[in-house]
């Protein structure tokens, strides 16, 4: 799973698989970080009160 694992191989199949995996994880992680970060910011700006 990580290059520190002793079976880690730098071949094409390995890189394609882990490339796809970490790409997807990166998007999910970045997306959630953005959403949560912006929500914290918005809340500090006083947005999203009781009215809705």
């Amino acid at each position: 799973m990580f290059p520190i694992n002793f079976e880690w191989i730098w071949d094409v199949g390995h890189m394609v698989f882990h490339g796809g995996l970490w790409y997807a994880l990166g998007i999910i992680g970045a997306g959630m970080t953005y959403c949560i970060g912006k929500a914290v910011w918005d809340t500090m700006q006083g947005k999203g009160g009781h009215h809705h």
Binding site: Y34, A39, V40, T43, K47
Partner: peptide, 21 residues
């Protein structure tokens, strides 16, 4: 809860990216 409201709003905004993933 303002934070939850904002979070939900932001997640809706970015949902297309999550859906594509």
């Amino acid at each position: 809860v303002p934070f939850f409201h904002n979070l939900s709003h932001n997640m809706h905004e970015t949902m297309a990216i999550f859906a594509a993933t």
